[in-house]
């Protein structure tokens, strides 16, 4: 894990920002609070871990625009929008665009904390998933061309003897390659290997 998970809070109202930070800190969460979207954008990177709590009405940029700017910079942390009076339509659009939830001010503390914990868990899970995928991609690089040919035919669900016939090798040779593929990709069986490989960028299209 690159960084410790934090809650990134953006609200232009000093009182609200202080209050929400206070609440979250008193619950033992690490909080970074910002008054403007620009300050937030300067502070986060794709490997920042945690979640975002954003006011939908911000100076210079509305919540939707900020959401787009974050995605464009490769920041995929879950977003919880908080909204004042009358911003519901914008919040709905934000959720449609991928935000996790929106809360109307003033909100119940338990609800906010639940959503934040859910968001942190989702972010951690996504980061684990990413780490696994990167691991598989690294392992794929270590396959020889022949092993890759065998592996791709395994993805297509072909039997050993069909692979042997197609590659014009003996069934015994295919079995050796197959064992090497499973070993290199750290899979116990072929179905586990298939699932891992199909999760990578290179083979995602094979799903179709």
């Amino acid at each position: 894990m690159a960084e410790q998970a934090r809650v990134y809070l953006v609200d232009d109202d000093d009182d609200v920002r202080d209050a929400v930070s206070f609440l979250l800190r008193s619950e033992g969460l690490a909080v970074d609070a910002f008054a403007t979207p620009d300050a937030l954008l300067a502070a986060v990177a794709p490997d920042s871990a945690g979640c975002l709590v954003l006011d939908v009405r911000l100076p210079g940029m509305d919540g939707l625009e900020l959401q787009g700017a974050l995605r464009a910079r490769g920041v995929h942390m879950p977003i919880i929008f908080i909204t004042g009076h009358g911003d519901i339509p914008m919040a709905v659009r934000a959720v449609n665009a991928g935000a996790m939830d929106f809360l109307e001010k003033p909100f119940r503390d338990q609800h906010l904390l639940n959503q934040i914990h859910k968001a942190l868990a989702a972010d951690a899970a996504a980061r684990n998933e990413d780490a696994r995928r990167l691991d598989v991609e690294r392992r794929l690089q270590s396959l020889t061309p022949r092993e890759r040919e065998v592996m791709e035919r395994m993805l297509e669900g072909k039997l050993n003897k069909v692979i042997a016939w197609e590659l014009d090798v003996s069934i015994r040779t295919v079995e050796v390659h197959r064992a090497r593929v499973l070993e290199k990709l750290n899979a116990r069986n072929s179905s586990e290997m298939v699932r891992a490989v199909l999760s990578t960028e290179a083979y995602r299209s094979w799903l179709l």
Binding site: D13, D15, V16, A19, L23, G84, K105, P106, F107, R108
Partner: peptide, 24 residues
Amino acid sequence: AGIAHEVNQPLCAVNSYAQAARRM
């Protein structure tokens, strides 16, 4: 609409502090 928002902000802050205080 603006005034409602303006009143809601401190209410929101008060609410958060009060709930934090209750937890404490």
